[in-house]
Design a protein around this nucleic acid. Sequence first.
DNA 1: ACCATATGAGACATCTTTGTCTCAGCGCGG
DNA 2: CCGCGCTGAGACAAAGATGTCTCATATGGT
Lengths: 192, 192
Amino acid sequence: MSHMVYGCLMAVDRDHVLRSAAALLTRKSTATMDEVAKAAGISRATLHRHFAGRDALVLALEALCIAECETALDAARLDDGPAHDAVRRLVREIEPAAGLLAFLYTESQLFEGDAQNKGWTRIDDRVAALFRRGQAAGEFRIDLTPAWLTEALYGLLASGAWAVSEGRVAGKDFTHMIAELLLGGAVRREES
Amino acid sequence: MSHMVYGCLMAVDRDHVLRSAAALLTRKSTATMDEVAKAAGISRATLHRHFAGRDALVLALEALCIAECETALDAARLDDGPAHDAVRRLVREIEPAAGLLAFLYTESQLFEGDAQNKGWTRIDDRVAALFRRGQAAGEFRIDLTPAWLTEALYGLLASGAWAVSEGRVAGKDFTHMIAELLLGGAVRREES
DNA sequence: ACCATATGAGACATCTTTGTCTCAGCGCGG
DNA sequence: CCGCGCTGAGACAAAGATGTCTCATATGGT
């Protein structure tokens, strides 16, 4: 039956296409629909059957990224324990999405009236709430606003993903470098 | 005489065009040559007379950005005094170029065999040397590599410029937020 | 006043990407 | 074995950006 085929084949294809596109666009943000199709191992016609156009593809990538980020937010259990540990868990969990996040971070400035805006602000709010919780608990300094710490986290994730893909830093250090810089900064400290 | 006209008018025009283009492309990185021309208040034909094409324009913007960064590096006197003060001076001096830096940071990944590559690596080296000096002096922690600290600085400058242009953080806090996060991190400290 | 030069406006061809369409092939279930 | 549906390949027009060209105009120096 058609809907069974749709459920079995098309779904996995769609997901595979999305992940291929994410991997490609992470490296080459100006990749053509044709390049995206080739990267996924399908023809441009089939790509067009799944995603009406480039906008629809980017929109689907946004939805995927939002979903993965929310999964990471859930897995990081932001409300549990010290906020700085929650930040470390968050960075660790969100690492797989960092590349896609970096792509969308620069791409979606075009779509000001973004259809996925609600999804992004929901994520922003959860992250900002974590920093706010840390400030309220006296863990985090209060001269850096939660909004800025959230932006900085995105920026560091993007820089980190890019630096790793360029071979400037080792992939295994990704989590440590981002979390430690965001939390502790560059200055050496006496206390443990 | 023609060379006098060239020296008086064309030079200032070229600089004005470059700065207009920088301001526009900072906000809309996919702006058309026509939009760039209109933003500079000139026609597309004149823009083409000054810059052979879009590549030439971006190349000139790179040269401008490199020059401004090096001026900032000089003004920050990276070799004087404590490294953390030098970092603060650097962030303050380089702030005007942050927007353009953010644009080129994402744009120039296309030009892998970049003609300006030498200029960028020269800047990278000077910044990395500053972090290395701070590490050698015991000011900075050594588990974060100079290369990563350099990348992180770029990422924070880009995030900061973008966040300011989006109105998410106040422009007057730009220097403080970037320098303090980079140096001290989010975690509150007991010592002074 | 005259002339050189830069400019603005616009036409024009070209290139790239995109979106749509058709058609033939193939797998898979009935 | 047959037919349905998905796919790949390719043709096609449309749209957008780019680069080049011409020509009329204005500006500025001589």
